[in-house]
Nucleic acid binder design. Structure first.
Lengths: 343, 343
DNA sequence: TTTTTTTGTGCAAACGATTGAATAGCTGTC
DNA sequence: GACAGCTATTCAATCGTTTGCACAAAAAAA
């Protein structure tokens, strides 16, 4: 930056004092005469002096910048998380530098590299779908570098993380479907390598088991892509045949549910009368579609807030997360809308 | 950062050479013996040396970081823009630091301040709804600091910017409604202080004028909040009365349209048979609601890409935007879906 | 008046990397 | 054997800020 920004040196030269004096005067150090302080501050004001954060970073080995790694900004859930992160970071004087991996491991690794050379003070991570080994994280953690994982959990012992109670959320959702009298419930599952997918599936299974219903493996279908096209096709195929047709769907997330909803409509099946439908994540559109989609809401903003709050505590060493690792699990909330209510 | 990151000095010490030698060896400067180069590179590799970007920034007065100011991440449109920005920035070795203003001017100003003290090389801005005077931008521009505005245009002569052709988009949308035989078309408008709102309204007016229909001011209603609740209420009130009831809506964006759609449904009005509906921005959900919403799609990703490409050119002085200011206008696309087709 | 204490400033090194200029040790030439 | 010319390396300053220590002058105590 050219920007002719005034520096401490400029002030010092102009006032015929040393840089040290200016520095101290600006920070109201004791041992500087009131007169000098006044003159320094006055000039600083006039020149619109703004401390050079880069120089400060270098000097203090602290950049007041934290890195955020997420798969994709355009996922509504992630954008709410970012919003929460931003909010707390900003009010604590931290900057947020953002990298999205587009679900790719190589991008994840190189993003971390650039961020590290930019001397970030800590990292908030929701890793990519491709990430199955976690050395690039655990190496950093061994060096005491502060990392908080959110939403997606790494297979690293004692990793500090914030997630939602996916198991419970899924359990509640399916239990609700059962209470509404639905019997043959399909689960459109997420990518099997993500912990969240497993948790949701387990919740689904538990609810069935509790109701004394034996799980039918043919009703559990993985939708790794997570787009509406995929689930449209899957659902259409599943419900085409009248014989032994399922009567409800619990989807891994709302986009998947939306695809399923369209498939059901194209088959002239009524929702919720013929088929009940519950999604996950409470995407922005869920309440606006017809019928409004029942879903499990995840507190995205809260996740972001919590994660960065913990990260800042790690950075400031206010709490020793090493001896007392923390895994925060936030509650989900089942939002019952029209798509799953038939009694 | 503790991180015991190896520095040039560490390598120098270990190898009993000076830092300068190490620096030059790493960059294959001429005048360093092959033997030394080999040893330096080998050790650098072994120590996993990574240049300190902060030190570099300070030295070179260039941070390879650009700042992005947007109103809110959770707006789908903005998140696609960010995605485009991210992509190009990353592949050019730039970092993105992100601040959302939550539509507040004070946040906007203080964000810019922090970003500047972090020595960003340039700024991409979509300013807040509250921003009505632009001194905080024009001051910077006078100092030749690179800024590109997107989506929202400041009242600054010669500001470099990227927008979509909102006028044309709105015009096409309303023309389409007219072609479908709708006659009394409501416009649920955006905040009147934003240029985009004006442009869309003008497009609406032009289409009407062309069709020889006199604009009825009572059919143009501002929805400054832009949430579905607001437009729900407005729409309900407008359509409640059978007498002289409007027969179509052109909404300032899809959320507003979605609110209107719910209101219409609650009045048992059929879409598109009784009332036609077109939104704006092609939010993710628009294709998934029932009926699927016709809308004007804005190329968010492309906007991001274009804006940062121009910014990088300004930063690298590849092009002189000062003598030849540029205002890029990207085309929108009318996506005709069910909500507006009745013939 | 001399010594001690206080007050206000300045010096210089440091953070990590770069870079123009200086220098040391060669080899080769006349 | 003196000196030019080359190669490989080091010196030192620089970017903007902070901070331990030294130091001078003035004020207070002896």
């Amino acid at each position: 930056m050219k920007l002719g920004q005034a520096t401490i040196k400029d002030i010092a030269r102009e006032l015929n004092v040393s840089s040290s004096t200016v520095s101290r005067a600006l920070k109201d150090y004791p041992g500087i005469s009131d007169e000098t302080k006044r003159r320094v501050k006055e000039l600083a004001d006039k020149l619109n002096y703004r401390p050079n954060a880069v120089a400060l970073s270098l000097r203090k080995s602290k950049s007041f910048t934290i890195g955020v790694i997420i798969p994709e900004v355009v996922h509504f859930f992630f954008s709410t998380v970012i919003s929460g992160i931003e909010e707390v970071a900003f009010s604590n004087g931290y900057n947020v530098i953002l990298c999205q991996t587009n679900e790719r491991l190589d991008r994840e690794k190189s993003s971390i590299d650039t961020m590290l050379s930019n001397q970030i003070d800590g990292l908030l991570v929701s890793f990519s779908k491709e990430t199955t080994e976690f050395d690039h994280f655990s190496k950093l953690m061994d060096l005491d570098f502060p990392i908080v994982f959110f939403d997606r959990l790494p297979e690293i012992p004692n990793a500090v993380n914030v997630t939602v109670n996916d198991f419970e959320g899924a359990y509640q959702a399916v239990k609700h479907l059962l209470e509404q009298g639905y019997k043959r419930i399909v689960h459109l599952a997420g990518p099997s390598n993500l912990a969240i997918s497993k948790k949701r599936k387990e919740g689904y299974l538990k609810a069935l088991a509790e109701a004394g219903i034996e799980a039918d493996e043919s009703l559990i279908i993985e939708c790794p892509g997570g787009n509406e096209k995929e689930s449209f096709d899957v659902t259409k195929q599943l419900f085409e045949n009248e014989k032994n047709r399922p009567d409800a769907i619990f989807a891994h997330h709302d986009i998947v549910a939306a695809g399923a909803m369209m498939a059901l409509k194209s088959l002239d099946l009524r929702i919720p009368e013929d088929v009940g439908l519950v999604g996950y994540s409470n995407w922005q559109f869920s309440s606006m579609i017809d019928p409004p989609l029942s879903t499990v809401s995840q507190p995205g903003f809260k996740i972001g807030e919590t994660a960065i709050t913990m990260l800042l505590e790690m950075i400031d060493k206010k709490r020793d997360y090493k001896s007392e690792p923390v895994q925060v699990v936030l509650d989900t909330e089942l939002l019952v809308r029209k798509s799953s209510v038939r009694i």
